[in-house]
Structures are given as C-alpha cells and as structure tokens.
C-alpha cells in the first residue's frame, strides 16, 4: 500500500509544470524514503532527476517499493482539476495498475481521480559524484529571465564562468547578446545573491530551448545552482523548500571549433 498526502496540491502542480515540457511519460519510484523520478527526454540529451522526500509530505506510507509509470500530460490534466489549496492524497495498492488522486477542498468537497498506470521501459543511469570546476548560485528568476531573453537571439547559449563573474552570450541572425553577472553577496536577502565557486574557468555551449525547459522549475525555488565542468553535463539544480529537489542534466553542445 502506498499513500502520500500533501496539504497543498499547488506544490505538486509546480513540480509537474517543471517536468511536463520535457517528459511525456515517466516512472515514479516510491520507496520508504520518498518519491524519485529519473527520466531522459525523448531526444536523450537531457535528464531529469526529481526527489521528493517522505518527510516533506504531510502523511507518507510506503510498505513496499513501487514503481508507477505515468503519462505526465494526463497527470497534469488531473491536477488541473484541483485548486491550489486543496489537500491531495495519492494512493496505490501494491502491484496495482491504477493510482488514485483524492482532492479535498476546505469546503467539504472531495473529488477522486483514478488514472491507469503504464509499463515503461526504464533505464536507470548512475550519476557519478563530480567535483565541478564552477558552481554558480543565482536567483532563479534571474536565470529564467536571462534564458528567455537570450532565446530571442540564438539557438544556443554560451555560458562562461571566470573569477570576475559569469557571462551568458549568444548570437544569431539578428545579432548577438551578452549578459554578464558579477558576484554579489547580499547578506540581508540571501536569495538575491550571486555566488561563484570556481576551481578553473569553464566555457560551455548549451541548447537554449532546453535551458528554457528547465526554468519552468523557477516557481519551486528562489535560487538556482548551475554546476559546470568541461566535457560533463551541466547540472541545473532547484531545491524545493521542505520537500526535495529537482536536478536537470544537459549535455553540452559539441564545440564548433576545437582549435
């Protein structure tokens, strides 16, 4: 028997918004410690790794490990039927082929939705611990804004990180764009500071469209962490307060010119 309850369905809605553009379907792995989801997008260049800790739920029970394959689009259809302040309870029997979502509103309204589960071929990838050359922390809204602005100019974004700061640049048919951010520690409002931990400078190119998919997670966290090293995927990490985290991995574009 699996049961998980969240006081606010809005939290889960935001999580779904953060993955539904990248993933059509995904397996939720439920265990005693919480819910995990690891999946690649259809083009297999990015990976989403979502962790929702059991202690972040209002009530959590998982007797046996359970994997639930779900169609993300249908899942978000179901959550569209809930109000943000509804309490949501997710339930599934062991070896069940359906999962039930119960939304309880404060006005004594209870709605039940049952969704069929899918059998998905899942391929779990082991993500090695990496010491990154650069780790950048910045306000998530700022990162979203930069990606959105630059996407008007070109298809790929060059992120280069040096001691001075981090530079996002792109160029395309209409011209080029450059955005530089310097380190700035704001002790009063920690969520607004930009910090850089750097071992050595790194410059990498990424597909703009994918970064824009990742920034769909912006409402989940005030800060975003970007970790980069040469020849390894970029990690874009959002810490969801009191609930867990969502990490996106994106393979860098192959360098145009190696010399």
């Amino acid at each position: 028997m699996f049961e998980a309850r969240l006081i606010n369905s809005a939290h889960f809605k935001k999580v779904l918004d953060a993955i539904k553009d990248l993933l059509k379907e995904a397996s939720f792995d439920c265990s005693e410690s919480g819910i995990q989801l690891q999946a690649m997008d259809d083009a297999h260049v990015s990976l989403v790794f979502l962790t929702l800790r059991s202690d972040g739920f209002d009530k959590y029970r998982c007797d046996r490990n359970l994997t639930m394959g779900m169609n993300i689009e249908n899942l978000s259809k179901i959550f569209k039927c809930s109000s943000n302040d509804d309490t949501v309870t997710m339930k599934a029997q062991d070896d069940a082929d359906t999962v039930t979502f119960t939304f309880e509103s404060k006005k004594q309204k209870i709605s039940d939705y049952e969704m069929k589960l899918m059998n998905l071929d899942q391929e779990h990838l082991g993500i090695p611990e990496t010491d990154f050359s650069c780790v950048i922390r910045m306000p998530s809204a700022e990162f979203a804004r930069i990606c959105r602005d630059l996407s008007q100019f070109g298809e790929s974004i060059v992120i280069s990180c040096t001691k001075e700061g981090v530079k996002f640049s792109t160029s395309g048919d209409i011209g080029s764009a450059n955005i530089k951010l310097a380190q700035n520690n704001n002790f009063d409002k920690e969520e607004e500071s930009v910090t850089i931990e750097m071992q050595e400078p790194v410059t990498l190119t990424f597909a703009c469209r994918y970064l824009n998919f990742f920034t769909k997670a912006t409402p989940l966290a005030q800060q975003v962490q970007l970790s980069m090293s040469d020849n390894v995927p970029l990690v874009v990490e959002y810490q969801i307060p009191d609930l867990g985290q969502i990490c996106y991995y994106l393979a860098p574009k192959i360098e145009e010119d190696e010399n």
């Binding site: 690649m40 391929e123 990838l125 082991g126 090695p128 597909a207 991995y249 994106l250 393979a251 860098p252």
Partner: peptide, 22 residues
C-alpha cells in the same frame, strides 16, 4: 514542438554517454 526540440538537441551527445547504466 517535438520537431523544434529535436532540432535544439542536435549537436549534443546523448546524456546516457556520460552516465553509467545501472
């Protein structure tokens, strides 16, 4: 949408080439 995504993905190594399969 899918086409645009596939286009954006072109020129990237598959992510699975970085991570070991378990």
């Amino acid at each position: 949408k899918d086409k645009a995504r596939n286009k954006a993905a072109s020129g990237c190594k598959p992510i699975s080439s970085f991570f070991k399969k378990t």
